[in-house]
Design a binder for these strands. Structure first.
Lengths: 137, 137
DNA sequence: AATTACCCTACTTAATTAATAGGGTATGCA
DNA sequence: TGCATACCCTATTAATTAAGTAGGGTAATT
């Protein structure tokens, strides 16, 4: 299941991507518009800033803004930052690989091979979708 | 993330599907062979029996066995029984649909539409994969 | 009748999620 | 300089779920 953190994060990013100009948007503005708990959203945006997706400006007139063009931000980045691994099992993860403690042979594991297929198809979607595509809804 | 419950369940089903004859297999046998906690596996197999995937026989020489041919058991069934919804958000689920509490308009929701795509591609894999396919590894 | 092996309920521990609370700090403007 | 704005950071908490563990009950077979 997708966490609320990721869901809210995507909604906030979409909100920012829809802004015409690139002036910073306050957390409270996004929070109100998207029905997201302010404090929770604060921590999500902070994570996105620390991971190079957002920039921020303090003081009056401050807020958050996108560092890149929406079309230059793939969903793979956003998902990995907010949700973590894209794969359903660590043993098929590209960025978060871990060996299974049970399971002597990965290549002979039915679960492994099935989940590899699922990861590939999901990854293809996320790679081919940018933040700009999400705004077309 | 895939739960251990589902992972173990798939492994156990694969084990049963690989049996030449259809004589019941004891829980302990599967537990030893696949490195699964016996008591945990017990509850998983019970779930599969209650959902029409497995049959069981009590007493000496008893155990669990598949009720259908492996090729007749699609991964969609197994996943829904063990893991629950295939989709990452309830609002795109076919069998476990729930409306989002935030989100006034589903069709205008970026998360919704993205996750719809992901669900479709995942579903396609699960629909086209049967237990028999898993045994080919 | 005894053994085998499934059946069922309840409990526990750990981890994660989704917040909530409360204050700290940098920035810009008057 | 000083004040308001708005980001920054840490800690705590309640609820839920995952992953087992414990212990006994019951049905079927030999």
């Amino acid at each position: 299941m997708l966490s609320k953190k990721t869901k809210y994060g995507i909604k906030a990013l979409t909100y920012l991507a829809k802004q015409e100009n690139k002036t910073p948007v306050q957390i409270a503005t996004i929070s109100n518009s998207e029905n997201i708990s302010l404090k929770f959203l604060e921590s999500i945006l902070l994570t996105l800033r620390k991971n190079g997706i957002l920039g921020s400006k303090k003081g009056k007139g401050g807020g958050y803004y996108l560092l890149k063009e929406p079309s230059e931000i793939p969903m793979t980045s956003i998902m990995r930052i907010l949700e973590g691994p894209i794969s359903m099992v660590p043993c098929v993860s590209l960025n978060f690989y871990e060996k299974c403690s049970d399971c002597p042979d990965e290549n002979a594991c039915a679960v492994h091979n099935l989940m590899l297929e699922v990861r590939d198809s999901t990854l293809q979607i996320f790679r081919n979708t940018s933040l700009a595509d999400l705004c077309k809804c």
